[in-house]
């Protein structure tokens, strides 16, 4: 499944990042690489973006970004 489907409070492991662009680079540089655990910490009041914990930092991603990230629970 993709990261945007991950429920609040749950942790999954990144299996891959789709898309071949600078967007993918940015996600990689944030430490979102295959094998990294990622947790849905909380959504914003309007549901998008969502804050995720990855490598001990909390980072907000918009839905389109989360949809690029494949995860496995």
């Amino acid at each position: 499944m993709t990261l945007d489907k991950l429920k609040m409070g749950r942790t999954a492991v990144v299996t891959g990042v789709r898309n071949q662009s600078t967007e993918r680079r940015r996600l990689y540089d944030l430490g979102i690489t295959p094998g990294t655990p990622i947790e849905n910490v909380m959504p914003s009041p309007l549901g998008d973006p969502i804050a995720y914990r990855v490598r001990s930092a909390v980072i907000a991603l918009r839905r389109e970004q989360a949809q690029l990230i494949d995860v496995e629970e």
Partner: peptide
């Protein structure tokens, strides 16, 4: 910065 490799 988090990285020196992206494009920002």
């Amino acid at each position: 910065t988090y990285s020196l490799l992206s494009t920002s």
